[in-house]
Design a protein around this nucleic acid. Structure first.
Lengths: 230, 230
DNA sequence: TACCACTGGAACGGAACGTTCCACTCCGCT
DNA sequence: AGCGGAGTGGAACGTTCCGTTCCAGTGGTA
């Protein structure tokens, strides 16, 4: 069955997804042709699988969300509260899930299923956080995790492995900072603040085909029930 | 002297610079028209002052560099080593200097003066770091500061003041993390890694007029003698 | 051999953007 | 009062870029 042409098709499907991850991780506004080029396929191979760019982006992001959930569920199995939290944070950073969710947010209109998954991801993260709360400095909130994960994802150097290495370094530093003494200054981030990129598409504007998604800093509030899955 | 038309010109000059800061901070690839719009001026007002987009970007970045130097020099006056370092880090984050330097790097070809300033900035930062080294956990290097500053700049929410507030929060956390016990994992970042965005323009390609500056992750090495000025 | 699912990539249409250009305004000087 | 020109807003232009479509080729499969 899976031989010859069919095998090539399957390989291409995976190559496209992997290439898309690499390319859009490096630049969320990259052209679709860059994905095809990186995957070593033509553009048709891409359009055979996805109706358009937005769908590819959405699939990619949804994958990241699912990976986040998987990491969180795995971490929740750890009996020690702090260890579970640490496994969770390190796992999310390691899997580079952030860029696949927050960084891509706003470049497509999320599906209902995505919103559900996002909520589940948020709940899982909050649960892990609550378990570890007793070992953390006072005043830290779950939304802080979203921000910190976002900050971790900003650590970036040439070379994927090296980037991962360095991020491990800084997660360690952040985890230590979370256990330090003293309260942090300033009001903690609101959930809506931490997830502002997940602005819901306004109901009157169902789905602009291709929203270039300028990453400005809107003062708007449209954020929907999407999760803090960073 | 400064009345009427001249006054308007002066006001516009400042408005343009401020608008450019805001706009390019939010999106380093924003169109130049967005700057004009934000400044409340026409495009001509912009082109009267700068020969082209690249020059505006360069000026902006150089300004940031100078501000970085000013912050570092002011911090160096503090007699207590750790306090000086803390004032320095907090000051750089507060002034949002990072995005004006690292984030804009690569979008223009730096001038000789900029390189000199960048080197000076790097030296100042290293000196501050060395003074505080005794109070920090083992294994931390100056290039870590560049990365951490970059991470701080990634904390971003709608609203400039709120963003500053939250960054203060996370600088505190990072500073505490820097004083924690234990060594950080992984090889520390090389200076070249921390400053990879400052890739020098190859000598054979003097100056493409407008380099869109995709922010990909090149494996190239072209980084010049530019500084680790976060 | 005939078919056809699948592919690579050229071609297309349109949007975005940097830059130029021009008609107009109004200050400052004669 | 009248003029010159610095300064301005914004339309227009040419180019580049990009998402999408289309078509001819290819090679398994029957």
């Amino acid at each position: 069955m899976t031989s010859g042409r069919a095998r090539e098709a399957a390989r291409n499907s995976e190559a496209i997804l992997a290439a898309a991850r690499d390319v859009f991780l490096a630049d969320s506004r990259a052209p679709i042709s860059a994905v095809a080029e990186r995957a070593g396929v033509g553009i048709s191979a891409l359009y055979r699988r996805y109706p358009g760019k937005e769908d590819l982006l959405r699939t990619l992001c949804h994958d990241g969300l699912r990976r986040f959930i998987a990491v969180a569920e795995r971490a929740a199995l750890e009996p020690d509260d702090w260890a579970a939290f640490e496994i969770f944070l390190r796992g999310v950073v390691e899997a580079d899930v952030h860029s696949l969710t927050v960084h891509l947010a706003g470049t497509f209109t999320p599906t209902a299923e995505m919103n559900a998954d996002a909520m589940r991801a948020s709940d899982l993260g909050d649960a892990l956080f609550d378990r570890a709360r007793g070992r953390m400095r006072a005043g830290v909130v779950p939304s802080d995790m979203t921000m910190l994960l976002e900050m971790c994802a900003a650590a970036r150097v040439p070379g994927a492995e090296r980037t991962t290495e360095l991020r491990r370094r800084y997660v360690t530093l952040l985890l230590d900072g979370l256990r330090a003494e003293g309260e942090l200054p300033g009001p903690p981030p609101e959930p809506a603040e931490a997830n502002w990129r997940w602005r819901a598409v306004s109901p009157t504007q169902p789905s602009r085909p291709t929203q270039p998604a300028r990453d400005a800093q809107p003062s708007a509030e449209g954020s929907a029930g999407a999760a803090g899955a960073g």
